[in-house]
Design a protein around this nucleic acid. Sequence first.
DNA 1: TCTTGACTTAGAATTATTCTAATGTTAGAT
DNA 2: ATCTAACATTAGAATAATTCTAAGTCAAGA
Lengths: 148, 148
Amino acid sequence: MDLKEKLAELNEKGCSLTIQRHAILEYLYENRTHPTVEKIYYSLKEKFSTISRATVYNTLELLKNYGLIQEITIEKGKSRFDYEVKTHHHFLCHRCNRVYDVNVEGCPLAGKKMINGHKIEELRPYIIGICSKCLQKKKSNDNFVMMN
Amino acid sequence: MDLKEKLAELNEKGCSLTIQRHAILEYLYENRTHPTVEKIYYSLKEKFSTISRATVYNTLELLKNYGLIQEITIEKGKSRFDYEVKTHHHFLCHRCNRVYDVNVEGCPLAGKKMINGHKIEELRPYIIGICSKCLQKKKSNDNFVMMN
DNA sequence: TCTTGACTTAGAATTATTCTAATGTTAGAT
DNA sequence: ATCTAACATTAGAATAATTCTAAGTCAAGA
Ligand SMILES: [Mn+2]
Ligand SMILES: [Mn+2]
Ligand SMILES: [Zn+2]
Ligand SMILES: [Zn+2]
């Protein structure tokens, strides 16, 4: 689902399309790196110097409630956001804190509505480890740069 | 692995077995409800009125690093702990905030060491939804009590 | 007994997030 | 075109979970 379609959907559902909302959704459309709220906030600040954290939080919550983005809580204590809403596995590297998409086929939960009598509404399949880039670095030299 | 074995393992590895550490591990052994840090802290406070939050956090971290307990970060912004360290799926009910174990067979990641070139160290298979108890309550009456 | 290092403690600091109250914006009614 | 009311944004305060700090305890070995 591309940007225009999501913007159209917002509009159809009667949600006013402010410049901030447009900018945040667009940012996620263009940055598929699972940015944190802080990252989104500072990136937008470059264009809209007056944008407030509250607006970023409110908008992300709103877009999430419209089902247009998803929240990723793989990293303890901070949220990240993803333009892609289809359920998929995420991998967090505890060295560099990057979050990757990983494709896992044949998950027995896929499509299931119930488990043990509980109603399934959302899957959060998270994997923690060391990413390929950090494994490389480890091999060559032991110095590495922490990134956000 | 029962309580005595875990305590013995701590001892063997040269970790001093203070009364607080014993109490925290014992608490998790006896309470398999995936308690939050706050829950653990207040429960222990009844017996050890002077125990401090820092000790609870430090001890949970220490036990986790010895591989004797696992941390569960299914609920945004707060940690829970589990005496069981074997990988298993967790289900969070967003109505009552209870966390349940669920048994899922045939996970394609089980036993895998690598994925997409990344080294897998830990799986965190989380499921969000409405638990069986809350589904029941919903049917009969719409009043329900939030629990922690 | 004294020393030393490890452990615990209370409370301060930090971090992410939510709340608040004031201000700004916009679409429909007049 | 202006008014108005609902909605949106803002800066900063408040909150909640966690981590840090510095002082006090404890316990094993010299
Ligand atoms: Mn993703
Ligand atoms: Mn469990
Ligand atoms: Zn990495
Ligand atoms: Zn429930």
